[in-house]
Write a protein that binds this DNA or RNA. Structure first.
Lengths: 128, 128
DNA sequence: CTAGGTGATAGAGTGCACTCTAGGTCAAGC
DNA sequence: GCTTGACCTAGAGTGCACTCTATCACCTAG
């Protein structure tokens, strides 16, 4: 059976992270040290895509890179870190819930403002 | 009738922006040039609080400072910029709607993961 | 009258998260 | 056999958005 392996360029293309960023992520510990081929080039399995997608989510919710690294490190340590990981995620989850609420409110504010602008434009258009 | 005026420290306290940040915002044009008292100190009216609250919202939705300044400049120019302002807000509004949807999804992902962690912790706790 | 607190300026410094450069290796196709 | 393109490393550079420092002016309470 064929095992799907990827070079760094392919991972970059599939995840949207740049090649530079992927190497940077490995250096800081956000990606585990990658297997290399005979020529010293990184070889990735398909799992890395799942992990990077999750990392992207953590990034999108505003988790600073330091905490993403911390999470990655705990993940690498295995089951003994589960409760600590849960706590970390819980903190960000609660914060995220608040932010989603606040952003929804802002969405309403923007809609109201846009409506006002549309009305104003119409009135100006008619009166001038 | 008493007119409520504020010094910069009071504005800072009420808005959550630091005094440094408020002066910085004025320098880059995010705040209009402020009136000064006899001693050269900035004197603010109550309107600035409303504006800063809105600026904070624009910041929270991820509008870069350059666009916030652009918006502030257009606002200072008056009605002739209304349609341009509407367009700018519309762009960020649409982007925001997508982000809110994506963040809600992430909220579900986090909840699922947290649940998994709780289950895992329980099983480990029982089996060890 | 002086000490403390708040205000002012110009400009330097900080932290984050990449992003890019220089200089090199290596395998494949013409 | 040589060019091309994807990969490698170490380390410098970038852009954003503040944040702080040094130094000075002003006003009020004790």
């Amino acid at each position: 059976m064929m095992v799907t392996v990827m070079m760094i360029g392919e991972v970059a293309e599939k995840t949207g992270f740049s090649v530079h960023t992927l190497r940077y992520y490995e250096k800081i510990g956000l990606l585990p040290e990658t297997l290399r081929d005979a020529g010293g080039r990184r070889v990735y399995g398909p799992d890395v895509l799942v992990w990077l997608e999750f990392v992207e989510r953590l990034k999108q919710i505003g988790m600073p890179i330091r905490d993403r690294v911390r999470y990655a490190e705990m993940r690498a340590l295995g089951d003994s870190t589960i409760s600590e990981r849960r706590e970390l995620l819980q903190t960000y989850r609660d914060d995220l819930a608040k932010r989603v609420a606040s952003l929804s409110e802002t969405l309403d504010v923007l809609d109201a403002k846009i409506t006002t602008y549309e009305t104003a434009a119409k009135c100006n258009g008619a009166s001038r």
